[in-house]
Structure formats: C-alpha cells, structure tokens
Design a protein around this nucleic acid. Structure first.
Lengths: 180, 180
DNA sequence: AGGCTCATGTAACCGGTTACATGATTAT
DNA sequence: ATAATCATGTAACCGGTTACATGAGCCT
C-alpha cells in the first residue's frame, strides 16, 4: 500500500495528472519505488473511490484532454497518518544475494565475472542517479524550502548504498582471487 | 520467480521436506528473501508439476508423515541456468525511503525521532543477524568447502548494509540538529 | 495445563508486472 | 519521415501475504 501514499504525497504539493505523476515518480522516487503508469491510473481510480482524491476534466485543443487530480481533506489526513506511522522495515529482498548464496555451485572464475558485472551495473546506476540532483534543483523552486533537504537525504542514501555495493563486491573479488 | 530457484538451490544440496525448507530459509536466506511456509508448499507443487522436483512419502509413527523432496535432472539444469544468468538488478524498493522523501511535511523533531527509531531497528536487525554465523557453521559440515565462502559473502553484505544505514541515519540526524 | 516441535496444507486477497491499445501534436 | 511528448487506459497474470485449519507427540 505504498504507491497510494506516494501519489498522495505528490498531490499534497499540488494538482497533477496521471501523466505528471508518472514523470514525478520517474525523476525522483524511481530509485527506491518504481511505478508503472498503468498502475498509477488504476491507483488514482481507487483513491478516488475512497474519497482521498478528486479530479477535474481539463479540455484541451492542442493536446489530449486530461484529468487534473487534487488531494481531498480526507486524503491529506490519510497522508499525514501514514507519514507519522513507523511501520517500515529495514528488510529488503534481493534475488542477486540469493544467487550469490548459491554460487558455490559455479566456478570461481564465473563468480569473479559475476561480481565484475555487478560492479558495472552499480556504476551505470550511479551515473543515472546523477540526474537526481538536477531534478531536486528543478522541483526545489516549486515547494517550501525544507522539502529538498529530505529529497537530498534519500539521494544520499542511494549514493552510499551503491558505494557500499561496489566496496563489497570488490572485497568478494579479492577473496576469490586469493583462492586462484 | 526466485523462491522457486531458492528451493531448487537447497534441494541441490540434498533431499528436504517443505518443513525443512521453511527452516532453511529462516536460518539463512531470510535476510534477503523471506518465504512463508504456505508459499513453499504451493511452490513445491508447482515445481513438481513442471518436473523439476519429485517427492517420496515417508511414513512415520512417532511424528506426522512427511514428503521428502528431491531435485530432478531437469530441475538441476534449470537451477544451473538460473545461476549462470545475470539478470538481477541493483534496484531495491523501500517504503521507508519514500517516507523520508515526503518527511518535509513533518516537524524536524518528529523526523529526528523517526531516524532514531530507524537506528534502533537496524541494531535489532544486527543482533538478529548474529545467528547467521552459527547457522553457517552448522550447515558447513554438510556441504563441500566452497559453499560457506559464498554464504559469508551474503552475511557480509548484510552487515555492511546495516552499518551503512546507521551511518546514513546518523548523518541525517546531525543535519537536522544543526537546523534547530 | 500449556507451549513447542513436527508436519502439511487451502482460500481469499492484493499489489505489482507485462502486454496491449489508441492517437493527436510538435520537434528534428 | 521519424521520434518524442502528451495523455489515458484495460486485461491477464503472477508472486507473495494473511488468515485459517488440523493434529499428534514431547517437554516443563
């Protein structure tokens, strides 16, 4: 039930269409909460049924018509309730770690390759994350000044996480090379 | 489709019941791939239909009867295929980070509390992870010597991850305290 | 008497993914 | 011409979660 709260969080900043939300997710939350646009439209319908958001149809001539969504008072309350609740877990799933767990069934050589390709992926991820800083700068103009601080916290987490991953993979490679 | 491969990975070490698998997940993979026992039993049926595992009914008098599962040749091939394939992503979902992202809507004081309670959770997680080392030692006797190396890699990842989380949360708290 | 271990499942639900479907306008 | 942008959705599927259901034997 977190996509719903992400949507409420964005609509709390101002009105948006499903399309806007999709872009907002892509340029900020995408690194720790990716959302398909198909899911966003469905979730908006659900939220509207629950009375947490409403929409207004905007007729456009040069572009397709659109539905501008806004958060309701009830939605605002739900959002604050979610924010205040400390129910999130440190736990995270990783199929890659599961693969590492069973990698004793592969050759040391293959595993060194696996870790190297993991490091490559991390570096790609790192460079794609650099666009976050631009996004933060861009959106900073539209909100109160304390918001960007927290956006930077999440971006900082991302950078620390990736660097940790790279360090770890390098240490694994080092130990494997000692075996050869 | 990763629980299936985890099951195949365990059965590759030797025969097990659904109950054994549930315990095996709990004492090793649980930190990056938690599995409900209800799901394990369902997945075993699916794997059997696909011909990747088979079972033998063991009649017991002092304990309930059980189904001993073993991996088939086809299952072994599928397992190796999965191991060799480099399709896992660095990406991970975190509802906590999403909450942080929107936490500019809460007071600085509340957010310091939030980060402190996150650090507490990390420490609890850390102490629960200490049982991993015991598990690794216990199971090490039953398998070839290279396996535990990879088990330790995953445990090492867990420790680095939690320490990174704690460092990050502390740095966030520090920045928030500077504002007060 | 109460709780743990062993042991196996079903049913309902739900959040998320993948694939499919449409179509005008604008910029290169 | 072609691709990108704007804009909205449906349908099928699937992996995973939660809750429920049962029951013998053993230990304290």
């Amino acid at each position: 039930m977190s996509l719903a709260h992400g949507i409420l969080g964005f609509l709390n900043y101002g009105t948006m269409t499903g399309y806007d939300l999709s872009k907002a997710f892509d340029s900020s939350l995408q690194y720790f909460w990716h959302a398909q646009n198909s899911q966003i439209y469905q979730e908006l319908s659900k939220l509207e049924k629950k009375g947490l958001v409403t929409h207004q149809l905007i007729i456009q001539t040069d572009k397709p018509n659109k539905k501008l969504y806004s958060i309701t008072e009830k939605g605002h309350e739900e959002f604050l309730k979610w924010l205040a609740k400390g129910n999130d877990s440190v736990y995270f799933k990783s199929s890659f770690l599961m693969k590492v767990f069973f990698s004793g069934n592969k050759s040391v050589e293959d595993n060194i390759k696996m870790f190297n390709s993991f490091i490559d992926d991390c570096n790609k991820y790192l460079s794609s994350m650099k666009s976050i800083d631009n996004s933060i700068e861009f959106y900073s103009k539209e909100v109160t000044e304390e918001m960007p601080l927290y956006w930077n916290f999440t971006a900082d987490f991302g950078f620390r996480y990736i660097h940790m991953c790279i360090d770890w993979a390098e240490s694994c490679i080092k130990r494997l090379e000692e075996l050869q």
